[in-house]
């Protein structure tokens, strides 16, 4: 499987070349275009896996779709173009028998060997960070593609790192995150618009997005026709 990421960071598109018989599991609605020798299968489970219904439901709670689309090349030299649904970036993160915790809706596509499941992140964190209660947990070995709103930048955490809520895309399972205040005082943090932030601890990779979708939505929304 070869891939190429083009037009970064806002209108990013992912082109994946597949050999005959190779498959790619994608987020529903991510396919933009493809060559004509491909087939698609829609299921709620990992390709060839079991236990679809519950997994699908859990994924729904984490902000992903109930279904997954598995594209398979029937002929040699096929390619497929994938894109996130909103303006944003795509990154490549290969997994080697490891786990990546991904913020809901940031998973774009992965090797069929990677299990895309949801993991419970805790009530308190969800309440205070404004993030979802379930996050997507991608584990296994193979290629993994994530998307975001905003450009994605990578941070190698060794010790502590602070991220404003709404800017997390994904992090390796070796990192722990807690909710904390951004500044010295809690009130100050709130007045400064930062409020509670996510503090990462440990060692591992962290992916952040440069922009926060709700902030943009709140600026544009008032100018739109009422619903």
């Amino acid at each position: 499987m070869q891939h190429e990421i083009q037009a970064r960071p806002a209108a990013t598109v992912l082109k994946v070349d597949l050999e005959q018989g190779e498959s790619l599991t994608c987020e529903v609605g991510a396919m933009i275009a493809m060559s004509s020798g491909m087939t698609v299968e829609t299921t709620s489970r990992q390709k060839g896996g079991k236990g679809g219904l519950m997994k699908g439901l859990k994924r729904m709670f984490s902000g992903e779709n109930f279904f997954l689309n598995h594209f398979t090349a029937q002929n040699p030299d096929q390619s497929i173009y994938l894109g996130p649904t909103l303006m944003g970036d795509v990154i490549y993160h290969p997994l080697d028998n490891a786990t990546l915790i991904v913020q809901g809706a940031s998973w774009l596509a992965s090797d069929p060997g990677i299990e895309v499941d949801a993991s419970w992140q805790g009530f308190g964190k969800a309440l205070f960070s404004g993030e979802s209660m379930f996050w997507v947990k991608c584990s296994g070995t193979g290629d993994l593609f994530l998307n975001s709103f905003g450009a994605i930048y990578e941070v190698d955490v060794d010790g502590q790192y602070t991220v404003d809520s709404g800017h997390i895309v994904a992090f390796e399972e070796t990192l722990q995150f807690k909710i904390g205040k951004a500044g010295k005082s809690l009130i100050g943090s709130f007045l400064g618009g930062e409020g509670l932030v996510c503090k990462f601890e440990g060692q591992g990779k962290l992916y952040c997005q440069s922009h926060n979708p709700p902030s943009f939505g709140k600026l544009l929304g008032p100018q739109l026709r009422p619903r």
């Binding site: 790192y161 404003d164 010295k184 503090k199």
Partner: peptide
């Protein structure tokens, strides 16, 4: 958006 832990923020 994010900062390392040695940065102090005051409002």
């Amino acid at each position: 958006a994010s900062m390392s832990s040695d940065i102090e923020m005051s409002t």
